[in-house]
Design a protein around this nucleic acid. Sequence first.
DNA 1: TGCGATTATGAGAAAGATTCTCAATTTTTT
DNA 2: AAAAAATTGAGAATCTTTCTCATAATCGCA
Lengths: 140, 140
Amino acid sequence: METQDLKKAGLKVTHPRMKILEILERAPEHHLTAEDIYRKLLEEGEQIGLATIYRVLTQFEAAGLVNRLHFEGGQAVFELDRGTHHDHMVCSRTGRVVEFYDEIIEKRQQEIAKAHGFRIRDHSLILYGEFIDDESASES
Amino acid sequence: METQDLKKAGLKVTHPRMKILEILERAPEHHLTAEDIYRKLLEEGEQIGLATIYRVLTQFEAAGLVNRLHFEGGQAVFELDRGTHHDHMVCSRTGRVVEFYDEIIEKRQQEIAKAHGFRIRDHSLILYGEFIDDESASES
DNA sequence: TGCGATTATGAGAAAGATTCTCAATTTTTT
DNA sequence: AAAAAATTGAGAATCTTTCTCATAATCGCA
Ligand SMILES: [Zn+2]
Ligand SMILES: [Zn+2]
Ligand SMILES: [Zn+2]
Ligand SMILES: [Zn+2]
């Protein structure tokens, strides 16, 4: 039940907020732009304004319900915060996103920060490239 | 002599390109937005259009002369490519950017990619937080 | 050095992404 | 149910970046 998530986050339970959460929960890609969410809602007959989507996503982010990612290409991408941190690998060819978590890298980041007198609040590690598998299907 | 850099990159030597290169070379911050460059040029009496700056930076990037970074906040940041790869630490308070390079992290990235059948073309690692030093000067 | 072909520039328009404004609607409280 | 408070939707506004196209600068060659 998602209403609990919203209440727990100190946000009032409204129809747009519920629907946006639902989309984020159900999307198999996991990583969606505000426009993606807007289109998916339209497809389901929900007429929720784009401004509301951006507004709600920002509230969700502040509440720790979603994470905002900055892949190259300008548009921000959002994903549900599933409680476990991870980083990303993005295929330039297909746009496919794969998540990974590496203890060694996470630990090194802390060590590097400490050595520089820096307190890490957040970080972003993104690998750009291609999956060898996707190599077969080449487009003209 | 910067004209060599341009010629080597297969770019014609024009006044705007030279000036933009100069600004990038002289800036102590090293990391500048297109607007930053635009303002610095204006201050020096150079009247170069913002469109030209974006255009030239994109050409420089394609030629490997500069790198484009995507810090959070939308605006792209550019820096001269000094031949050695490095990653970034950004202070949310002051905007200060510190560079670092860690062999262990670089190596782990390759290992992770290999394990996923992924060929890395590029990557971006950014640590966001604060420098403990900068803590003294608190605002409001 | 001077010309002409080619390429680059500048200004403003245009596009893309995100935020803002505010009247109307929905939620919550009384 | 009514009043008070918060949220929404539509479009305007803003911000960053790209595009268009007439003008200007660059480069190879005579
Ligand atoms: Zn991480
Ligand atoms: Zn993710
Ligand atoms: Zn690196
Ligand atoms: Zn740098």
